[in-house]
Structures are given as C-alpha cells and as structure tokens.
C-alpha cells in the first residue's frame, strides 16, 4: 500500500505546477486553470489526510472536499465570466495586456 507521503509529494508537485502555470502563462484562462490545479492539489491532501488519519470513520475530510468542489465550480463560473467581460471590452485575454484600471 502506498504511504501518506507519496500522496503529499504528488500533491505538492501538483500545487507547484499549478502555481507555475498561474505565474508563467499569459492566457487568462490558463491562469484560472492553474488556480484550479492548486485547489485540486489541496483537495487531494484533504482526502489523503482523511484516509491516513487516525479516524477515517469521521468524514470531515470528505465533506471539506465536497465544499471545496462547489467553491471551485463557483469560482470557475465567475472567473470565466470576468474573462469574457474583459474580452468584450478590450478584446484581450492576455493578462499582460490587461493593464488599464480605468472604467
């Protein structure tokens, strides 16, 4: 059976990859995807800690992941709507070119 540290390692890798994607890519949608990746790395951690923790009969880890899934869905919807609105106004999705804050 695999140990907890394996899962934590994978989740750490996933989290840093998501961070890199968020910081490095220019496309706004990819920035959002990076954030989703980080959220999922955190979710994996929750489930791994729940399963390997001392009391897996209490389902708190799973419930946290459930809520986090819902939050992620809401975040994706709002984020994509924002990207669309920005694109309509400036026809730009490159985060480097969205540099005006004037309404």
């Amino acid at each position: 059976m695999d140990s907890l540290s394996d899962y934590l390692l994978l989740s750490a890798l996933l989290f840093s990859l998501g961070l890199c994607v968020t910081l490095v890519r220019r496309h706004a949608i990819l920035v959002l995807i990076g954030i989703e990746l980080m959220l999922n790395a955190a979710n994996l951690n929750f489930i791994a800690f729940w399963r390997f923790g001392p009391n897996p009969e209490a389902l708190d880890g799973l419930l946290f992941v459930l809520f986090s899934l819902a939050v992620a869905a809401a975040e994706a919807a709002v984020g994509l709507a924002l990207i669309l609105a920005v694109y309509r106004r400036y026809s730009v999705t490159d985060v480097e070119n969205i540099d005006e804050l004037k309404g």
């Binding site: 989290f15 840093s16 910081l23 220019r26 985060v95």
Partner: peptide, 19 residues
C-alpha cells in the same frame, strides 16, 4: 509570440521554491 509571460523566470523560481 511566446505563450509565456515576460517574468516567467521569476515565476518558475517562485514555483520551485514553494515546491
């Protein structure tokens, strides 16, 4: 144009250090 932003080296450094 490259799909990576101008400060990508810095981003990689941040990601690597977090890892």
């Amino acid at each position: 144009v490259s799909p990576y932003s101008r400060g990508s080296i810095a981003g990689l450094i941040v990601g690597g250090s977090v890892f």
